[in-house]
Design a protein around this nucleic acid. Sequence first.
RNA 1: GUGGCCAUAGCUCAGUUGGUUAGAGCAUCGGUUUGUGGUACCGAGGGUCGUGGGUUCGAGCCCCAUUGGCCACCCCA
Length: 461
Amino acid sequence: MKPSIPKGTRDFSPQEMVKRNYIFDTIKRVFQRYGYLPIETPAMENLSTLMGKYGEEGDRLIFKILNNGNYFSNFKNDEHLSEVKNQGEKGFTQYISEKALRYDLTVPFARYVVQHQNEITFPFKRYQIQPVWRADRPQKGRYREFYQCDADVIGSNSLINEVELVQLIDDVFTKLNVPVLIKINNRKILSGIAEVIGEKEKITTITVAIDKLDKIGVDGVNKELQENGVSVVAIEKLQPLIRFQGSTSEKLNFLKKLLTTSEIGLNGVEEAECIFKGLAQIPDFKSQIELDITLARGLNYYTGAIFEVKATNGTLTSSICGGGRYDDLTGIFGLPNMSGVGISFGADRIYDVLNELNLFPESVSASTKVLFVTFGETEQNYCIPLLARVRKAEINSEIYPDATAKMKKQMSYADDKKIPFVVIVGGDEVQNGLLTLKNMASGSQDKKTIEDIIEILKNNH
RNA sequence: GUGGCCAUAGCUCAGUUGGUUAGAGCAUCGGUUUGUGGUACCGAGGGUCGUGGGUUCGAGCCCCAUUGGCCACCCCA
């Protein structure tokens, strides 16, 4: 049998894992710096928890888990079965599947909050770093299993949360040395726009279309709007808006005038203004920020501010971080009036960016600092207590396990694992207690006591 | 769900109008060296040419189907 793994999934080698952990550790440290605490939720959720939260397209992309046991036990009789068959794929699914792999971390978090509401002190700030699964067609920067790193605060309406999250994004990418553009918009502005052009019900169509502006251009957007039944008058009214260019404050002023008749729209503009005002006060803010009224984001549950982050260098054009405010995600689980806002880092895409731009620091590849090389069982036994002392000094160390292996083999092992030092222990060394410490980079070697070796290794970084 | 490109050793790829036993580099293992890696030299293992059918005296090469991968659309981290 030829070994293989499912489409869109990957194995990670030690070399890759060291780099991945560098990303996870960086993000985790920043999350903690801002007062977020970790939780974990199961890989699988009840299918009903997930369905309908991500839009129609989202439902299709949820990985369903087939029930165990007899799939037919849920059918009363043959007539019932054929009745369900006629409902098509969607109707049939609920009879043979009641669990699914999580699609993101936000909806399971909402479920968690409602389920544990009596144990939680609000506002609740949590972070969560776990894989999610999507039954998508894999392609560049898109996987079927990938890690999200989420930070959310729930139970607070304050816009300082939005400001802090953008600051957090800036912190993470500054630490990772990735130059980014953070795009900010507000769903209320989009609602307002739909309202003033007289197509309030077509808001989803409109936002999805103008989201593609930089991809398909003004004409493409207009064409798509027309094809989806948006009136010519409405499209005409939309033109000055999608063609508008200017600074953030110019955009805000323009929107204020345009949206005078829409309460919700003005509200959105106010919120955006407040967030940008807050951001302006942050010292040493490195990232580019932009108010982008064409930013829509697909996930249905966003109601206020929305964010999206893209790397400004490299060939990966898809977003590496995204988020926004959702006013009523917990409502469907029975806890209304609980507003939350959060962001999600796509660790795998960030990895691709760092890899392409060569931004991983050298130091992340080193793990073992010293390898003990021996010539036989006597020497190997002699090393056991020495190794214990080295490890007690918090120096990563190992001994070549096969005592009869040739020296060449043992040295190659050190070389292959990029271990910077080797301690050679043969008959001479055992006899006089002076060990040979070899620096693999320079090739030089000296006889040293174990105490000296520990000192040298401790001071070498 | 729609479309395009591709499939030869563990990896990256050669392979002539269809013609003997399908090659190279890298990687792996062994040796040159029984106390010295990364460089050098010598050698070895490793393939039903993705799978199934067809055309032909003869197929890695041509045709059909199928599976898998990559890329784009949709959508998204």
